[in-house]
């Protein structure tokens, strides 16, 4: 019989995250990023992992209502905190007005940037219900999109904030 390997020294810790209103307890190592914990441990894969470098915004989530990059956030630093991900934007089957506006304006193509965009824009609208185009751009400048050319996304935020933009698609 082979010898049992020595148990490694562990620096893991148990943390609790309140994600979209539900508490999850997970055991994480210091090196685990929030995006890994959300996607791999909690199973919420709506948050996308685009670059791991903090440069694309696809992994944006709301941490205590502020948009942050989950690929550059230590999960162990988030113990006890509130998180919102794309899975938490709709109430049951009822889409948020912003989600509906993304559909109506054709602001979604491949969809990979969409969760991050939605969360950045949600944070904006919760703080600034009627943002100007400049404010929208400033809020979304950290979210890259390669498909849409952004104009439809700006239109979607304007539609969601009831600023005279009507649906492009039926």
């Amino acid at each position: 019989m082979t010898e049992t390997p020595k148990r490694p020294k562990s620096n893991s810790r148990l943390i609790a995250l309140c994600v979209n209103g539900e508490w999850h307890e997970v055991t994480v190592k210091p090196r685990h990023m929030l995006v890994e914990v959300l996607r791999e441990m909690i199973g919420l894969t709506g948050t996308k992992d685009g670059c791991e470098q903090g440069t694309c915004g696809a992994c944006t989530v709301l941490l205590d209502e502020r948009p942050v990059l989950s690929c550059m956030t230590l999960a162990a630093d988030c113990d006890g905190r509130q998180l919102r991900t794309v899975e938490g934007l709709a109430e049951g089957e009822k889409l948020s007005v912003l989600q509906q506006a993304f559909l109506d304006q054709g602001a979604v193509q491949c969809g990979f940037c969409t969760p991050g965009m939605l969360l950045s824009a949600t944070a904006l609208l919760e703080r600034t219900p009627k943002p100007t185009t400049d404010e929208i751009k400033k809020a979304l400048e950290g979210n890259l999109c390669r498909c849409t050319g952004y104009n439809a996304i700006v239109a979607a935020v304007l539609q969601a904030s009831d600023q005279g933009v009507t649906p492009l698609m039926k």
Binding site: L89, F102, F112
Partner: peptide
């Protein structure tokens, strides 16, 4: 000839859409 909304839109705006990196 009509501008209909995307079939895959609802999956993509709710985080339900499964990309290759999401398959477990």
């Amino acid at each position: 000839g009509k501008s209909l909304r995307r079939k895959d839109g609802p999956d993509k705006i709710t985080g339900r859409a499964v990309y290759s990196q999401d398959v477990k």
